[in-house]
């Protein structure tokens, strides 16, 4: 009765778990950007992803102390974590699909798939960063408490820097030039720089609305091979979605391709008319992973 029971966890291990979990959670926080896309929504969406990121970081942090104590079955938690992150992707996809009917224009399945995959991969960031931090601190335990913590933080940040750069995708602006284009209404037909867009302007109201308040953007790929990605329906849906989500839509939205020149036209009547910001939004629209095609592997 008087015998003191051994500690459940040593101070060293506790420090490793705390520092690694903090680093992993911080990595998730740093990738949880709230930009012009306003997604994830604030504050509930961010809260959900931060908590899931914290759990991912904690799993990565406890793996090393668990192996050290010969508890190899604890590693199976990593497999469980992967399953959990796949569920994150699935729930994200379902959530975005549920919202499709309420948006000005649909995001489209390709864009939703890209967003869901990104959310899944960001949890791996937290897991990897915490795992690297914990491994470093364990390997450098002979250095002393403070130096090993510093080393763990530095290598954890290096891991974060490397994987965040590795997984960084391109944007529409990286593969094309984007500019405002002139709208022209000829009787009941709509043209943007002589490219036919629609003949659905059968009433004077429609003709007046689009000629006075309509806005059009022309996107030209910088290379002929890039047309495959840019002209993809999912990619065009994503561009139109970002444009209409940011500026709203009063009426009409069109995307058209000019096959002879490779130009892609986006035209709509926005609620807020701001050409400069629209160009920036189109430029910053992510280039979807599912539409990428490497011309090198086609030879």
């Amino acid at each position: 009765m008087g015998e003191k029971s051994p500690p459940v966890i040593s101070t060293d291990d506790l420090l490793i778990i705390i520092v690694a979990t903090l680093m992993g959670t911080l990595a998730r926080y740093m990738t949880l950007r709230l930009d012009y896309r306003q997604y994830p929504s604030h504050p509930n969406g961010r809260m959900i992803h931060l908590v899931v990121g914290f759990i991912a970081a904690a799993i990565g942090a406890v793996a090393i102390p668990a192996i050290k104590s010969n508890n190899f079955t604890a590693v199976t938690f990593l497999a469980l974590a992967i399953q959990n992150f796949r569920d994150v992707r699935k729930s994200e996809r379902e959530s975005l699909k549920d919202l499709e009917t309420t948006e000005f224009t649909p995001r489209g399945n390709a864009y939703i798939d890209g967003i869901a995959k990104t959310f899944e991969s960001r949890n791996y960031f937290a897991l990897i960063v915490s795992l690297v931090t914990a491994t470093t601190m364990e390997s450098a335990k002979y250095l002393g408490l403070f130096p090993k913590t510093i080393l763990g933080v530095v290598l954890g940040y290096a891991a974060f820097y490397f994987i965040s750069h590795y997984s960084k995708g391109k944007t529409v602006g990286d593969i094309s030039s984007i500019r405002e284009a002139k709208i022209e209404v000829r009787n009941t037909e709509l043209y943007v720089e002589n490219i036919f867009i629609s003949n659905l302007l059968g009433t004077e109201n429609a003709q007046k609305l689009i000629s006075e308040e309509g806005i059009a953007v022309i996107i030209e790929p910088t290379d002929n091979d890039l047309r495959i990605a840019l002209e993809n329906y999912g990619q065009r849906q994503a561009i139109l979605f970002e444009a209409t989500r940011t500026f709203g839509i009063k009426r009409y939205h069109f995307t058209r391709r000019d096959f002879s020149t490779g130009k892609v036209v986006i035209c709509f009547v926005p609620i807020i008319n701001d050409v400069d910001r629209l160009l920036a939004v189109v430029k910053n629209t992510p280039l979807l992973e599912s539409v990428k095609k490497s011309p090198a592997v086609m030879n």
Partner: peptide, 29 residues
């Protein structure tokens, strides 16, 4: 014809296609 076309199109939030023979079609594409 024009008046009726506008009234129906407004009610249905639809678009109007004017054919070259003068027929007005109310549709949503």
């Amino acid at each position: 014809q024009n008046q009726l076309t506008i009234e129906i199109a407004k009610a249905l939030k639809a678009d109007v296609l004017k054919l070259s023979n003068g027929l007005n079609i109310i549709l949503r594409a």
